[in-house]
């Protein structure tokens, strides 16, 4: 199983039946492919609708795109609205869970995912509103950068998307919960050791006494 699939499958286990969920582009969106049996969620798209679904035919509707501008479809029972309503849903606590990628995340639950000064400045889009308003914020990302540098730090160095907003970090190596006392290691991926997690993590963390292996198959 590749890193992205491990992460997406584990993220999918966080879905609860009836949840309203906003998924970021990339690995978070992939999680929707692994919905547990009997669980259905309503996907919110911040450009203005509820009931996001993959494109269900060869014909794309240019006026129906996801927040990445890609053609998608809308489920029966979906609803469309303007951007103020969309962010009233997001900021107002009506989204149960949001899953986003990160450039950096730290042991205080700070998240940086919208700019690298002088190099990459895509803008925050809806991310700052999502992390300030969603009931549960999950960071889903590969544990390290492509060159192996840690992304889970004691303190973020990049400009923040949100301060103290992250609840869980799900990577290809492990699952951390962000608690008021710091990071708690809940699970490790099959075949991964705690030492491996420690080597690839700058942040301090405590191992949960009942720590288990990620329940993914």
């Amino acid at each position: 199983m590749d890193a992205k699939t491990i992460i997406a499958k584990r993220v999918a286990q966080e879905f609860e039946d009836g949840y309203v969920v906003n998924l970021g582009i990339g690995i978070p969106t992939l999680a929707a492919d692994f919905l547990p049996t009997g669980i259905s969620v309503i996907l919110q798209s911040e450009n203005g609708f509820l009931g996001l679904a993959p494109l269900d035919g060869p014909v794309a509707d240019v006026d129906l795109v996801n927040a990445g501008g890609k053609a998608v479809s809308i489920i029966p029972g979906g609803a469309v609205f303007d951007s103020a309503m969309s962010f009233a849903i997001i900021r107002g606590g009506h989204v149960d869970m949001t899953v986003l990628g990160a450039l950096e995340v730290d042991q205080e639950g700070n998240l940086a995912n919208w700019m690298v000064p002088g190099k990459l400045v895509p803008g925050m889009g809806g991310a700052m509103d999502l992390v300030s308003g969603a009931k549960k914020v999950i960071v889903a990302m590969e544990h390290t950068t492509k060159d192996g540098s840690p992304k889970i730090l004691k303190k973020c160095t990049l400009p923040l998307t949100g301060k103290g907003v992250v609840n869980f970090i799900i990577t290809n190596l492990c699952v951390f919960e962000v608690t008021p006392a710091g990071l708690l290691l809940l699970e490790i991926a099959p075949g991964v050791t705690v030492d491996e997690v420690r080597t690839n993590t700058v942040a301090e963390f405590v191992i949960k006494p009942q720590m288990c292996t990620m329940p993914i198959v």
Partner: peptide, 15 residues
């Protein structure tokens, strides 16, 4: 000159 504003804030500022 680019001024970046969170999307939900921008929507509400315009509203």
């Amino acid at each position: 000159e680019v001024e970046l504003i969170p999307q939900g804030t921008l929507a509400e500022q315009i509203r």
